[in-house]
Amino acid sequence: MGSSLNAPSRFRNGARTLTDRLVTGIAVFSTILVLLPLVAILGYLIYKGASSLNLAFFTKVPVPVGQSGGGMANSIVGSGIILLVASVIGIPLGIAAGVYLAEYGPGSWLGHVIRFTADVLNGVPSIVMGIVAYSLIVSKQHHFSALAGGIALAIMMVPTVTRTTEEMLATVPTALREAALGLGIPQWRTIVSVSLRAASPGIITGCMLAFARVAGETAPLLFTAFGNQFWSLNLNQPMAALPLQLYTYAVSPYDEWHRLAWAGALVLILLIMISVTLVRLFAARNSLAGGR
């Protein structure tokens, strides 16, 4: 072994340290750059919206123009219901499709078709989803409904959930699957209790991404859930939703409504952040300490 080849000269050592610092610096700078818009948006929303937040905002329904007071209680609850419908339909469907792609049909033609469809569906503008739900449900029933809104959002969630489920299952080591199969555990049970469980942190992240993305959607709800100025908990009736109410208020010419719109935007973002955090905490508590 030529030791002179292995021992770096002082100069090369210095150059390496410099490169190392440079790359670290670029990484840190990029992180800050990425975080900046989030912090800026949140800060601006708090600045503009926090002053209009009060108890009435969370407990009262909207009041007609000219009257002061009123809140968005019906929109907050409405958004919650519509998102619940979307998640209950979209997440199981997406996970099941992802399981098929990863475990049953990785090389099959059906697998390729599903994967391609999911990718295309992911790129479809959200207003198109609204039109689809409108023509499939609203125009048949001859009335707007929260259910139609939920279904439109569910269709939007499916491709994200499907693709993350597939990708997370692909990272589960073959050794783990074989361990289960080797014990005489049927394939479906292996998928449910071993593969999906091992991949669950990633899949939950995917579901939360899909959830957060559709939570702020306005376009698919415009001609499905439609919006409502009054209390309604009936899935078969038009229902208020935060993004819709925001839109109505934001395009109005009234200052009072503008202030409410800012507060609504703040509440929407906070609710999304809280629900994502809660799900993560719950998932972390259910996984075994020291397991990962």
Binding site: A175, L176, A179, V194, A198, S287, G291
Partner: peptide, 12 residues
């Protein structure tokens, strides 16, 4: 029963 080359307990 089968025991594999690398220990593969279920991590969860």
């Amino acid at each position: 029963g089968m025991v594999f080359q690398r220990p593969n307990p279920f991590p969860t």
